[in-house]
Amino acid sequence: MCDVVYFSTQSGNTRRFVEKLDVPAQRIPRSRNDAPLRVTRPYVLILPTYGDGDPRTAVPGPVIRFLNDPRNRALIQGVVAGGNTNFGAAFGLAGRVVAHKCEVPLLHRFELMGTPEDVAKVRACLAMEMTDVG
């Protein structure tokens, strides 16, 4: 299984989804005052979109700060995006933006805290990503 790095605000939808995956996971700190996260193993990034239809502002600031560290960026294998189809074309937009910028695949989109079907699909993706990176 590939590791997971995720971002979640205090509403915790993405955190709940990640907990259901039951894989090693690290949370990107919300506050600038917290020590920044540094990863050392390949990971899949899981992040939410809060209905922001503008690609320039869709990605949460803490995720941008995390990815601005080239050592973190080098280890990203893929992206999973949380969101809501109610946001129309902006569904999972932050995930699409990161996948595009980092040139990695957007593996899956799920809504809110994810259904059991979403959990199964993403677990399968994580298993595959691990075989890919050896």
């Binding site: 239809g53 189809t85 946001f87 129309g88 074309a89 902006a90 699409r96 259904t115 079907e117 979403d118």
Partner: peptide, 25 residues
Amino acid sequence: PLFPGATEAVNPAILAALSPGAEEN
């Protein structure tokens, strides 16, 4: 969620109308 497999059971045309793809907003 209470209803298993509910997302997959929705007519894809309705989901597409709800949330058009990235390229066709």
